[in-house]
């Protein structure tokens, strides 16, 4: 059980860390000042959630690794995030679509984790859910506006949706870690999030005049540490100081 929870906390923490990193890359470069603020705010929430999840992972592991050790001193094969969150920003449409696909999953996953039988997990979920409710509100709202905006904005949103769709399926693949945590009531019951995600996403895409992509293949591997080439560059960037000055305090 503690091995499974360690693994699960890493998955949640790594999702937040890598998505937070990607979102923070926008700093000072967004289409409008209000979005600079919103993107920095989203990244900040995600980094805060990273501290909680990776802190819990280190505590469960019991080998004295801190959240920072886990963030800055693991190589790509030890990262457990979904492939979706490491996909490059590309443009505002890809960034927004990646966000909304993840936010709907994140929102319902945290909603289920609020009732976790593990008090530490429930407490993190409760705090994070307040922030993620806002992330979802913003990303869903912008998706509708840009999907149903100009022809150009519609086309860019549809292209991003099609490009990222193969990374959606991984969110719903469940393995023995998920099964063990579902059994003990620590994690969400198996299969509970997908119908909620499907329902929300159908309504959202409909409102945004976007088409549910006709793409069924699934890119997977993130939960097992087999990532896309993009992650290595994220880590090279993120971990630079900790790697270049081993043991230094900052």
């Amino acid at each position: 059980m503690s091995d499974a929870l360690f693994e699960y906390a890493l998955r949640m923490g790594d999702n937040c860390l890598i998505l937070g990193h990607r979102v923070s890359e926008w700093c000072g470069h967004s289409p409008v000042l209000e979005e600079d603020i919103a993107l920095a705010n989203t990244a900040l929430d995600l980094i805060g959630q990273t501290q909680l999840w990776l802190g819990l992972a280190g505590e469960i592991e019991g080998k004295g690794r801190s959240a920072d050790d886990l963030a800055f001193l693991r190589d790509a094969r030890a990262f457990r995030n979904l492939l979706l969150v490491e996909r490059p920003n590309v443009d505002f449409a890809h960034t927004l679509v990646r966000e909304v696909l993840f936010d709907v999953w994140h929102f319902h996953t945290l909603g289920a984790l609020k009732g976790s039988s593990d008090a530490r997990v429930a407490a993190i979920a409760e705090k994070a859910l307040k922030e993620v409710s806002y992330h979802l509100q913003r990303s869903a709202d912008l998706t509708v506006r840009l999907g149903d905006g100009t022809q150009e904005s519609h086309d860019k949103m549809q292209a991003a949706l099609n490009a990222l769709w193969p990374y959606v399926g991984e969110m719903f693949l469940q393995d023995e870690v998920d099964a063990e945590l579902a059994d003990s009531g620590v994690g969400p019951a198996l299969g509970v999030v997908k119908p909620l995600w499907d329902g929300d996403m159908r309504r959202l895409l409909d409102q945004a005049t976007l088409k549910w992509p006709d793409i069924s293949h699934v890119q997977k591997g993130g939960k097992d540490g087999v990532h896309t080439e993009a992650l290595g560059y994220v880590l090279a960037d993120m971990q630079f100081l900790q790697r270049a000055y081993p043991g230094a305090k900052w």
């Binding site: 289409p31 409008v32 979005e35 443009d91 509708v144 506006r145 905006g149 150009e152 904005s153």
Partner: peptide, 13 residues
């Protein structure tokens, strides 16, 4: 690069 975003938001409004 952000022009299409701002135009999209205005068009939706």
């Amino acid at each position: 690069d952000g022009a299409w975003v701002r135009e999209g938001l205005v068009a939706h409004a």
